[in-house]
Simulated assay, not measured.
Amino acid sequence: MQEAIERAVAAGRGVTGTLRVGFSAAWSNELVVLAADVFRARYPGCGVQVREVQLADPFGPLRAEQLDVQLTEFPVAEPDLVTGPTIFSEPRGLIVPAKHPLMRQASASVEDMARLPMVVMSGEIPQYWLDHHYPRHTPQGRPIVHAAACTYWQEVLTLVSMGRGASPAALRAARYHMRPGIAYLPLRDADPINYGLLWRRTGATARVMAFAETVCEIAGNPGSPPNVLRTGSSSPAES
């Protein structure tokens, strides 16, 4: 009887059908899966499908309506997409060849990014996103050379392991993307990488809003309900 009541309540709120959720990083996937488990228990009439989104086309599946909501790296400033508050942040690091002289240090500075070429992502990626994650100059104005552009993350790791350059990344990637020939150094003076939810401006369904509430709660942000979310703005990510 209780399950029937819960299904009726969920149907009344429109939280039925199937919710398709995307993620762009392994650590985002963990939060999405946990939130999906809680979401299914609360809304038994709504299924959840989870899939990875490639960084080379960060908004393509969402715009193609293959996904309803996505947890991804900020900044996002797209007029057709709505961004939510920062869900969590990760310290930034630098992936370097394991035998590079930088490995004599306990950490690296953003200025050190001018000491060796950068391996960067490419594809259907907005320029402001690339400039934020792969700058071309250090804070002191030293040029940062972009030596190679990759479509998939494994290509980045391969080129770094072969000594072709370095790449900025979330420091937490060391727990998920380690291989021979590479090492991870903390970037002690870099801003963290912020992660948050986004969805189509025309796709703010009851399912999406309920899932956003669930993710905020699981991540420890119960004070960030969907009514504070903005359209086409990355300011929550930068706050």
Rank of each mutant, 00 (worst) to 15 (best):
V96H: 02
T83D: 00
I95T: 01
A114F: 08
P97M: 09
S107Y: 13
P101G: 11
V119D: 00
A114M: 10
V110D: 00
P126W: 03
E73P: 10
M121Q: 13
F88C: 05
V69T: 11
E124W: 00
D112E: 05
M121Y: 11
V110Y: 00
R136K: 15
G84E: 00
P139S: 09
I125F: 04
T86W: 07
P101T: 09
M103D: 05
A108D: 08
V96P: 01
K99F: 10
P101M: 08
L116E: 10
A114E: 06
E73D: 14
V96E: 02
L130P: 03
V120Q: 04
W129H: 12
G84R: 00
K99Y: 05
S107P: 13
P79V: 04
E73K: 11
E111H: 04
I95W: 07
R115I: 01
D131M: 05
Q70T: 12
S107K: 03
V119S: 01
D131G: 03
M121R: 14
Q127P: 01
T86R: 14
Y134H: 06
P75I: 10
V76Q: 02
P79S: 12
V110T: 12
L102A: 09
G84F: 07
S107L: 01
E73H: 13
R92F: 12
T83A: 13
D131L: 06
L81T: 03
Q127E: 15
P85I: 04
M121E: 10
M103S: 13
M113P: 08
L102K: 07
R104M: 14
L130D: 07
T72N: 10
M113C: 13
L67E: 02
Q140L: 11
K99I: 11
M121D: 06
Q70S: 14
I95E: 03
L71C: 10
H132I: 02
E124H: 08
M121L: 15
I125T: 07
V96I: 04
S89W: 04
T138L: 07
R136P: 05
